[in-house]
């Protein structure tokens, strides 16, 4: 049986909402950024989802994982978005939007844990790979500029970045599972 709906004006409920959202927001954000190719639009959708989550929190059934509920709201927003912009922007199919929503882990990885694992994994990267990743993400350089900095061809930089991202993702996954 579902729990009694939570009252949004209850201070305990607000604290509970803050905690749940803090833990789940990175997963919701990851889902939106994976589902919407336009990153700016994904960012705006995240704001909309946050508002909806706060507004509708009294409808949340605590017997269900919060992240699943929040991602459900996000999924609806993305489907609305793709219906609205299907003719004017690049959007994924409904099947893909659904598949990505189903792929969100029910037990969300805390952002602090993800960051910590990623930092450790960065330390394991080889020097040239770490250099390329640093130039890409801290200095916000494109591959052709990184190529100049690292005395490589732009194509080689793209490959290096691709391999580095893949290695980091695998490393984080391993550390979470380990």
């Amino acid at each position: 049986m579902a729990n009694q709906p939570t009252k949004p004006n209850d201070s305990d409920a607000r604290a509970r909402l803050a905690e749940l959202w803090h833990n789940s927001q990175p997963s919701v954000s990851a889902y939106l950024f994976a589902s919407v190719p336009n990153h700016h639009d994904a960012e705006d959708l995240l704001g909309q989802v946050a508002v909806a989550v706060a507004r509708d929190f009294d409808q949340y059934d605590e017997s269900q994982p919060f992240v699943r509920w929040a991602v459900g709201i996000a999924r609806h927003r993305v489907l609305n978005y793709r219906r609205k912009y299907a003719m004017s922007k690049i959007v994924f199919s409904q099947e893909t939007v659904e598949a990505l929503a189903n792929a969100v882990p029910v037990e969300p990885i805390r952002q602090s844990d993800f960051k910590a694992a990623l930092k450790l994994c960065m330390g394991k990267l080889q020097t040239h790979a770490r250099k390329a990743v640093t130039l890409r993400y801290e200095n916000d350089l494109r591959p052709r500029h990184i190529a100049n900095e690292m005395d490589m061809t732009p194509n080689a930089v793209s490959i290096l970045l691709h391999r580095s991202r893949k290695a980091l993702a695998d490393c984080v996954q391993d550390s979470m599972e380990g």
């Binding site: 990175p26 954000s29 990851a30 889902y31 950024f33 994976a34 893909t96 598949a99 990505l100 189903n102 792929a103 969100v104 952002q111 993800f114 960051k115 990623l118 930092k119 990743v133 640093t134 890409r136 993400y137 801290e138 200095n139 916000d140 991202r165 893949k166 980091l168 993702a169 984080v172 996954q173």
Partner: peptide, 19 residues
């Protein structure tokens, strides 16, 4: 595939945040 893409996308996102 969806799970792998989602994880890779988040890795990219967190790298951006860290930077």
């Amino acid at each position: 595939n969806a799970a792998a893409f989602l994880h890779l996308s988040r890795t990219h996102q967190v790298l951006t945040v860290l930077g």
